[in-house]
């Protein structure tokens, strides 16, 4: 599978997390395996656990350019390679533009083409691959395997100068085909435990008061334990919430009041993004208030 004639990404390149991104041991190992063996890395995990951020951090840590391809439900695999803009060529021909003679003017390069032609090793992020049609991953098998594709309009095969590191994220909305999974390495970012969470928060807020952090984490993990929430608050929501707490200068005591009459944490809008969730939470809070 890996083509030895291609220039390798130097073997001593190792990702160890960055100043702004806490990577656990299992994650760094998976990333480094993907770098060394030049296979795509598939990342899954709850929304907001830093899947997309990972690609940016890996790129910046290794000093490689990052090409991002955000997938939507209408995205086709071909769009990542190139698109032939027949409509503007037709228009140009009707207007008598001389550019019309050269078809290459109307070939729009996709993300993979750009990455393949890049003069240095790069990182390609294929974000939220599960949003696309069920056939989408299958259509990219050969391209990701051989790191080349054929452009029929130009009669030319585009080959990667350097095999890029491909990071794919998925939110598990659709099953990915087996053949595709076989070619990837896989890592599931599990929700961080309290200790890792403290490290993550420490990275974002180096001067956060210890008191406030302790109370905030308590409220946060309690909130995650509430049964039936549609969307549990995740790391990115915690970070946003802490930002707000700091901006509003909320004292730690205000968080501790959760047992007392005011059971809803201040600025909860940053943590609960769903009307039904807020409603459910208010109801639970109301019930706990009624208890003596």
């Amino acid at each position: 599978m890996s083509n030895s004639t291609l220039a390798h990404i130097p073997n001593d390149m190792k990702f160890e997390g960055t100043e702004t991104y806490v990577a656990t041991r299992d994650l760094t190992l998976a990333v480094n395996a993907a770098i060394a063996l030049q296979r795509p890395l598939l990342i899954k995990g709850e929304p907001g656990t830093g899947k997309t951020l990972l690609a940016e951090e890996v790129a910046s840590a290794l000093g490689m350019p990052l090409f991002q391809w955000h997938i939507k439900s209408t995205t086709k695999a071909q769009q990542g390679l190139y698109e032939y803009d027949a409509v503007s060529r037709l228009r140009d021909s009707q207007l008598g533009d001389p550019r019309v003679e050269d078809i290459s003017h109307y070939i729009v390069h996709g993300v993979l083409w750009q990455a393949f032609e890049c003069d240095q090793p790069s990182v390609v992020l294929i974000d939220e691959i599960d949003k696309a049609d069920i056939e989408f991953p299958n259509d990219l098998l050969r391209e990701l395997d051989r790191m080349e594709f054929h452009c029929y309009e130009l009669h030319r095969t585009i080959k990667a100068k350097h095999r890029p590191l491909i990071i794919i994220t998925s939110n598990n909305e659709k099953e990915l085909p087996d053949a595709f999974l076989r070619r990837c390495f896989f890592h599931y970012i599990k929700f961080p435990d309290k200790e890792t969470m403290q490290r993550i928060v420490g990275v974002h807020f180096p001067v956060l008061k210890h008191e406030l952090l302790k109370e905030a984490l308590e409220v946060f993990f309690d909130l995650r334990d509430v049964p039936g929430l549609k969307k549990k608050p995740s790391t990115s929501e915690l970070i946003d919430w802490l930002k707000l707490l700091l901006a509003e200068d909320i004292p730690p005591e205000a968080l501790r009041a959760k047992e007392a009459k005011d059971a809803i944490p201040p600025l909860h809008g940053a943590l609960l993004k769903n009307e039904q969730d807020v409603h459910l939470f208010e109801r639970l809070a109301f019930m706990s208030r009624r208890k003596p």
Binding site: A30, F186, H187
Partner: peptide
């Protein structure tokens, strides 16, 4: 792929690391 990774000395002798590596390479769900 796992053998390739071991040959590339991605992990040292620790069983913990081998566990993480083999999980990333062999389990896809």
């Amino acid at each position: 792929a796992l053998l390739e990774a071991l040959e590339a000395r991605l992990v040292s002798g620790s069983l913990d690391d081998f566990y993480l590596l083999s999980r990333a390479l062999l389990v896809k769900d």
